[in-house]
């Protein structure tokens, strides 16, 4: 399913642009709704073409997300004057500007950067959903057949999960851009997957890895004077490479050692 999240992160673009046009501002809620709708539409279209038109699933993903992304880019150039979004921002975000966009309280005090508030709420919501429905999500991700057999609606949990992916994507969109959010969605779990066999521990580890990648990425970006989001993606790749080689359970070195000892 890893590449469906890749597809969603690209395909939410027209949703964001349309939400922008309707609300006329970078109001986060409308954007989340617009992107959420597009995210679910993407998932639906991929499955529709795969199941009903019998298109192979890799091609279904590729066709759907490029189509929606192209529409998004065209919408941006069509309404270039009205939409305060540009192509660079779409690709790699503007995390460096988050402190400039503060939420201002009525008495004139600054509360916190808007992105921080939005991301905190997304984190809380996702944390709550995962804690509450841990069992259902686990079961439907690992064994959809069994889950259906004992009466869970696989489709519902699937779309809930994809809805969460869309929400995270759009919330991170302004900060890290459409493509780099994929690095944040895929790389930390893949790294954690190499480090543990316990699913709960994998969830914690992958968030920890995400945090480490962000912090170290920030310093890398400052040092190189480059894009922060891109540096975070790079660092997450470095962490993955580390786990790939040195993981005590599944690492390359460990395998080599085991083979040498036998």
């Amino acid at each position: 399913m890893a590449l469906v999240s890749d597809a969603i992160s690209h395909a939410v673009l027209p949703g964001i642009v349309l939400a922008f046009l309707f609300s006329g501002s970078r109001d986060s809620l409308t954007m989340v709704v617009g992107a959420g709708i597009l995210g679910l539409l993407t998932t639906f279209l991929i499955e529709f073409f795969h199941k009903k038109a019998k298109l192979q699933s890799d091609a279904a993903i590729g066709v759907v997300f490029t189509w929606l992304f192209a529409i998004g880019v065209v919408l941006i150039s069509l309404f270039a004057g009205k939409v305060d979004l540009d192509q660079d921002c779409v690709l790699y975000g503007e995390i460096a500007y988050t402190p400039l966009d503060m939420i201002i309280l009525e008495n004139g005090n600054l509360l916190a950067p808007k992105a921080v508030v939005v991301m905190t709420s997304v984190l809380l919501i996702i944390g709550i959903i995962i804690t509450l429905f841990y069992k259902e999500l686990l079961l439907t991700s690992f064994d959809p057949g069994y889950a259906t057999a004992i009466g869970f609606s696989t489709a519902f949990w699937h779309y809930l999960l994809m809805g969460m992916v869309s929400a995270t994507t759009v919330a991170s969109f302004e900060s890290v851009g459409a493509i780099l959010v994929v690095a944040l969605l895929i790389v930390p779990p893949a790294t954690a997957y190499l480090l543990t066999d316990n699913f709960k521990r994998m969830l914690w580890l992958s968030s920890l890895i995400g945090v480490i990648a962000s912090a170290s990425g920030y310093y890398l970006a400052v040092w190189m004077d480059g894009s922060i989001a891109a540096a975070i993606a790079t660092m997450s790749g470095v962490l993955f490479a580390g786990a790939f080689v040195f993981s005590p359970t599944h690492g390359l070195l460990k395998r080599k050692l085991v083979r040498a000892m036998n």
């Binding site: 994929v182 975070i232 790749g237």
Partner: peptide
């Protein structure tokens, strides 16, 4: 060489390489 599946590997390499590219580009 690892238990990572192909689609995850594709997404991983794609985003990390691209991230590194953007980092260099902004640099």
């Amino acid at each position: 060489k690892s238990r990572i599946k192909e689609d995850t590997a594709i997404g991983l390499i794609l985003s990390v390489f691209f991230g590194f590219g953007i980092l260099l580009l902004t640099y």
